[in-house]
Design a protein around this nucleic acid. Structure first.
Lengths: 111, 111
DNA sequence: CAGCATCCTTCATGATACTG
DNA sequence: CAGTATCATGAAGGATGCTG
């Protein structure tokens, strides 16, 4: 894709920052509060540390998430949404509301 | 990704149905009204007919879009959102609202 | 605990050419 | 006009193993 971002299209910007299947799910988990790396990994069944790291780094770069390191033994790192990241709650809520109207994938209508 | 869909997670369902960079942008265009194939292609700079076809077919299968063929010469086909697809307007609006708060990617804060 | 390094797979997409 | 067919690419993701 060369440049799908039509000038006045905020949707495209959202898609650029929350790309990939996991991005939005990570944000969803962080909306419940700050998480340590392992907590996030355990809350997202199937995600690999590789992917989790990549997504979190991208979120940091985009100012959606803050990363706080505590110099302890064992080391502790906490990820937390910035105010900007918190603003995603409305979007995620809208997704959830919409999904309620979606018929179950396997459900067939009895004609 | 094996199964990112946590049981009560409508967000995951949304992501499954609107996957890929183009999906949401196509819906965004259809929210403006019914479109012919060529109209959609021209409204989405950079999209290939291959991709456009694939996305539209998937939307059809998921009940988000209807495809209507008119037996004319030259042939005419119109794509239109179903009520379910129309329901995505709220989600897209939320994305757009959020994006307004995102600092411009290249913009540096003058300290 | 919180990652990083490396290699490999999958999938949406792109490019190009062709048809009813 | 509205696609389909074929081949190729690139980025997200997965698997495994290792480190400060």
């Amino acid at each position: 894709m060369t440049d799908p971002c039509l000038p006045e299209c905020g949707v495209a910007r959202f898609l650029t920052l929350l790309n990939g299947p996991w991005a939005t799910l990570i944000v969803r988990e962080l909306l419940r509060g700050p998480h340590r790396f392992t907590e996030l990994r355990d809350s997202l069944p199937g995600i690999s540390p590789h992917t989790l790291t990549n997504r979190l780094r991208q979120f940091e770069r985009h100012g959606i998430v803050t990363r706080t390191t505590y110099a302890e033994i064992p080391p502790r790192v906490e990820y937390e949404l910035t105010p900007l990241g918190e603003g995603l709650r409305d979007v995620l809520d809208a997704m959830g509301d919409w999904a309620l109207a979606v018929p179950d994938p396997g459900a067939e209508v009895t004609v």
